[in-house]
Amino acid sequence: MSGGFAFNADNAAKAKALLAKYPEGRRPSAVMGLLDLAQRQVGWVSQEVIEAVAEMTGLAPIRVQEVATFYTMYNLSAVGHHHVQICTNICCLLTGSDGVAETAKRALGIEFGETTPDGRFTLSEVECLGACVNAPMMQIGDDYYEDLTPESAKAIFETLKTGGTPKPGPQSGRQFSAPAGGPTTLKTLGGEAG
């Protein structure tokens, strides 16, 4: 039943390794990994992908479809090269995700759920991605961009548009989720032991 989808050589090897993780008769356990791998290859989970994964895992296609439709991180329609997912849940909302979203819409010229005509960007509104301490935030591809302001968000989009790679993580300069003004304890970490 595998229609138009097949893993490329690299991914075929990865898929084989994934399936090998599970004992004989437990191939269905690899379904989520395989769907993710396929999504990385073609950008989204298509009917062809579902059928190919069903064949590889020995599941009925409907079982694979159930998994693919349950988890929101599987894209059920084609997305652009850069999938921009902006969190608008409570923490991000309180810290200004409205401005970030507005900036993104203006910079990319599209609304939520749309893809730019050149197919480079897709803009999505998503629920909490679990980086509340660095709100507001967005995810582009596999990277989190945090502590955003409309200005820093705009800079990220400009960089991406010119083909560059913006620095992921907090855009405010702080280290990960350390206090915004710099460390308040263990200040000498890495120096001589106190």
């Binding site: 009917q47 009925a60 296609p61 409907i62 079982r63 479809q65 159930e66 439709t69 349950f70 988890y71 929101t72």
Partner: peptide, 19 residues
């Protein structure tokens, strides 16, 4: 005959056949 499934999640879940 595994043809029916629950597609979608939460409030959006629907019982249906593949395609």
């Amino acid at each position: 005959v595994p043809e029916l499934g629950a597609v979608g999640r939460g409030e959006h879940m629907e019982v249906g056949t593949y395609l």
